[in-house]
Design a protein around this nucleic acid. Structure first.
Length: 878
RNA sequence: GGGGAUGUAGCUCAGUUGGCUAGAGCGCUUGACUGGCAGUCAAGAGGUCGUCGGUUCGAGCCCGAUCUUCUCCA
């Protein structure tokens, strides 16, 4: 390793990167949230450029043409990064930081390469003889030339033999099947010892997956546009997009062999070492566990900070899986049987809270959510252990040596018990597991899920040339529109169509607010738009039928009543958010929201149940704002910084460079793209209908507004009036009902006593009718009563004799039945089966029956048959 | 979004092929023994068997719908 003049911490390395690019005229922007909203194709930010996609695609123009940042990224799937690999080796991560600098149509190869070189060799002082660069060699089939421009620039900085030609696979970057693309140039560093370097030339190891000859920086030069037919055309504006993994860079600069040996990870590992008493570097297995935990806590804490809580589906499920994997390693390998990740989140906060303030502002939430998840997983494990013990006992009892794949899968699938724990416990009991069978079951389950969610989309059919589509719904509810393109989508056998219009008054689902519905009509036809959604930046209208004439001009008409009701709920949501912060405190932050025409649902961070008094205060606060009839102040294109200065409560998902829309109702200031009422008076009234918990530290409030609330009040009032009338308008309604309940209770008890007495009396009367017969005490009787009473009487009578045979034929309304009882001893002595008897005679009453040897019942419809049935039974006694 | 599991007394759970007056342990109430506590013994209270509907003479159990919680997959 080379000697550094001074040791740099990860924080210092990050800061120097910022300082360097700031000195080159870049604006340092903050990281976009790691959790992606409103993009069905992507759950998490997985590269630095994600938040700038629109600039490259030309959908938006940036304010600043040179920016740099450190982006938090999460990768959990993909062929190079499987969750199960993280921690096993020393260089995979789930969450990582990507340093990057960008030029949006500003500087290009010359500057990008020069600065990259300067930063690495002058600022970070990596010796030149450890660096190699790769350049795109060209591709004949694609008709892309060799990147000679980059080669010539590199020659100014680095010896020619250190420039390596690389193929399309490694050095040509594309955003998708179509769109911006271009060659890239990568910088690789050789971290091997002098001795090893003498033996093998570093050049031969570049791009060969050698753990110590690694790529540290990729510079992409976007200069082409890939068209649908596969051909390339030069872009009008050329861009630079670079990415350098901070963890890997730190490893190189700190002279370590592994990312996990850098100061950032070591602090986390050390903290786990302290609680577990296992030291790092002792055993392979415990080292893996320590790395897994150190890696995963970052992914977990950052996700929660971004508002993505562990859950049982979607992105939340990914987080839960990561968290459970960390707990599992702690539990199984390090013997940690108490929550430990929550404590570790505090260590992480201290480490990374400076550049990522959200870790500190959300500290309490992160801690509580993680702790709750850990506890719940421990419960799952505990239940699973009980199950597996039963299972093992069964397997052993049946003399087998293997737990079937199906059984292991059931434990995993239904009870969430991890396979490796199952096999560990099985091994301790000298059993094996049919892992092949397990894998088969898992495949079946995957296939089922895939089949159920498979969404088939046809290609877009272009009607008019592609152009930007404009949203005009803030001002208009209807407009003349044309269809730009459409496609057919089928899901679970249902077919519908997606339409993109040149301009649209339809609001697409987003920001919690549901999408608009309405109609599209031309002079001779009309189709119904049942929903509007956003796909990346396209507003997509859903309809179940296509219009016949696609090229016509249509009138797009939004369903105004539905939208008006939705707008009331949306504005009320803002007032609710503000009221919550005023009354509960500023720790309240939005964690989720759903706004429909029927009502609103708002999830927010808060650590205890909202009391009834607080709810009343909140409701009053909102209704006061409604009565004050505050006018909407809307600002459609404010810089983010200006919006923050106004005190806007930042929600998740906004990106650097966006002009944001700010919605103000007096003191309530929010970034929001939704539809709102022009003044709060239009909301009418707000009624909170429910308060509940959704997760640790997260509460949910549901409410209704406007006509829905009025209808609710009307119904309640009508009910009250009815009750009032029923009780003959008492002075104090509540007291009257309380008294009624009390009275009812005592009457019921009295009734029970009375019924018991009556049964007792009846029993005593019947006791007199018991006759001796062949040494037994026998009663045959017909009664006008129900089956339950007959049963009750017979059970009581039986207690008083030791060779009792009781038969009651009972009838009531249009039903009748027969109940037989015998003393247990009597039945077994004579081998009598009352249930058999009852079957023989149930035909007489047109019914059926059954029971046990000493007690059986039958029911039927024909009371006239009771006599015959009873006579038949008598004959049984000999 | 799809699959599986789950819901029975305050808590943890039993409840066999539909029929043994819905049970156990812990907890609770009362009483007895003990100087007090702990403890032991006795008696007792507590359940619309998640909800709605169906099949059946009869449903905690079977069928359908729906909700809750857990869990796996996407």
């Amino acid at each position: 390793m080379w000697l550094q003049k001074k040791h740099m911490t990860v924080s210092e390395i990050r800061q120097q990167f910022f300082d360097f690019f700031e000195s080159k005229g870049h604006q340092i922007v903050s990281s976009a949230p790691m959790v992606v909203k409103n993009d069905p194709t992507l759950m998490f930010t997985n590269a630095g450029m994600n938040q700038f996609k629109d600039f490259f695609l030309g959908y938006q123009t940036p304010q600043q043409r040179r920016v740099a940042n450190s982006q938090k990224c999460l990768r959990v799937s993909g062929k190079h990064n499987d969750l199960e690999e993280v921690g096993v080796d020393t260089y995979h991560h789930t969450m990582f930081e990507m340093l990057g600098n960008w030029s949006f149509g500003d500087y290009f190869k010359e500057e990008a390469i020069g600065w990259a070189w300067e930063l690495l060799t002058k600022v970070y002082q990596i010796p030149v003889d450890r660096l190699y660069v790769t350049v795109f060699e060209g591709d004949q089939k694609d008709g892309v030339p060799q990147d000679t421009e980059s080669i010539n620039i590199w020659k100014k900085w680095i010896a020619e033999e250190r420039i390596i030609m690389a193929s399309k696979k490694d050095n040509f970057w594309e955003m998708g099947d179509t769109g911006p693309c271009g060659p890239c140039t990568e910088i690789h560093v050789d971290l091997r010892s002098e001795a090893e370097r003498q033996q093998t030339a570093g050049k031969t190891l570049v791009n060969q997956d050698h753990p110590q000859v690694i790529e540290i920086w990729n510079n992409v030069f976007m200069e082409f546009n890939r068209k649908a037919d596969g051909s390339l055309e030069p872009l009008p504006a050329k861009h630079v997009d670079t990415g350098m993994g901070l963890e890997r860079l730190a490893m190189a600069l700190q002279g370590k062999q592994s990312n996990y040996d850098t100061d950032l990870f070591q602090a986390l590992i050390q903290s786990v070492v302290n609680v577990s008493g296992v030291s790092y570097g002792q055993h392979e297995s415990t080292d893996i566990a320590l790395r897994v935990i150190a890696d995963h806590i970052r992914a977990i804490a950052f996700s929660i900070a971004d508002g993505q809580l562990p859950a049982n589906n979607g992105a939340g499920y990914v987080i839960r899986r990561i968290l459970r994997r960390a707990v599992r390693y702690g539990y199984q390998t390090l013997g940690l049987k108490e929550p430990f990740l929550c404590e570790l989140s505090l260590v992480l906060g201290a480490q990374m809270g400076a550049p990522y303030a959200e870790l500190l502002t959300q500290k309490e939430l992160i801690y509580k959510v993680i702790k709750e998840e850990e506890l719940s997983f421990f419960r799952t494990l505990e239940l699973g252990i009980k199950r597996i013990e039963d299972l093992i006992a069964q397997v052993k009892a049946s003399g087998q040596q293997q737990i079937s794949g199906a059984a292991a899968f059931e434990l995993y699938d239904t009870y969430g018990f991890p396979l490796d724990l199952t096999s560990l416990i099985a091994r301790e009991n000298e059993l094996s597991i049919d892992e092949e069978g397990f894998a088969q079951e898992l495949d079946i389950q995957k296939e089922r899920s895939r089949a159920a969610t498979s969404l088939e989309t046809d290609d877009w059919m272009q009607v008019h040339p592609d152009c930007n589509t404009t949203f005009i719904g803030y001002d208009q509810l209807s407009a003349p529109v044309q269809i730009i393109k459409h496609r057919k989508v089928s899901q679970k056998g249902k077919v519908f169509y997606q339409l993109v219009l040149d301009q649209t008054p339809f609001y697409a689902e987003g920001g919690g607010q549901i999408g608009d519905s309405g109609t599209l009509s031309s002079s001779n036809e009309q189709v119904r738009i049942f929903d509007t959604k956003k796909e990346n930046n396209l507003i997509v209208h859903l309809c179940s039928e296509l219009p016949k004439d696609l090229s016509a001009t249509f009138t797009a008409q939004v369903d105004a009543a539905k939208q008006a009701a939705t707008a009331k709920n949306h504005s009320a949501t803002h007032l609710l958010h503000h009221a919550l912060r005023s009354i509960l405190g500023t720790h309240v932050e939005q964690k989720g929201s759903l706004v429909t025409e029927k009502g609103l649902r708002f999830d927010f961070s808060h650590f205890s149940k909202v009391t009834d008094e607080e709810l009343a205060q909140i409701e009053a606060h909102i209704n006061a704002a409604i009565q004050a009839n505050i006018a909407l102040e809307e600002n459609r294109a404010l810089d983010i910084e200006a919006a923050k200065a106004k005190g806007a409560m930042a929600l998740f998902g906004e990106k650097y460079g966006d002009k944001v829309r700010v919605i103000e109702f007096g003191a309530s200031v929010e970034l929001c793209g939704g539809i709102h009422v022009p003044n709060t008076g239009q909301i009418g009234v707000v009624k909170i209908t429910a308060e509940s918990a959704v997760a640790a530290g997260i509460r949910r409030i549901e409410a209704i507004t406007g006509t829905v609330a009025m209808t609710y009040f009307k119904e309640k009032a009508a009910q009250l009036e009815q009750i009032d009338a029923l009780l003959k308008k008492p002075k104090d309604l509540v007291k009257a009902i309380e008294e009624l309940q009390l009275k009812n209770n005592s009457l019921q008890k009295e009734l029970e006593r009375f019924a018991k007495m009556q049964a007792q009396q009846l029993k005593n009367e019947l006791k007199a009718e018991v006759v001796a017969h062949n040494g037994m005490q026998v009663l045959f009787k017909e009664l006008n009563t129900d089956a339950a009473t007959a049963k009750d009487i017979l059970f009581q009578l039986r207690q008083e004799f030791d060779a009792f045979v009781g038969v009651i034929g009972h009838k009531e309304a249009d039903k009748c039945g027969i109940t037989i009882i015998l003393n247990e001893a009597l039945a077994s002595k004579n081998n009598w089966q009352a249930n058999q008897w009852i079957k023989e005679i149930s035909g007489h009453i047109q019914g059926g029956g059954g029971g046990q040897a000493a007690f059986a019942t039958a029911g039927g419809k024909n009371a006239a048959g009771l006599q015959t049935a009873l006579a038949h039974l008598k004959s049984k006694l000999g």
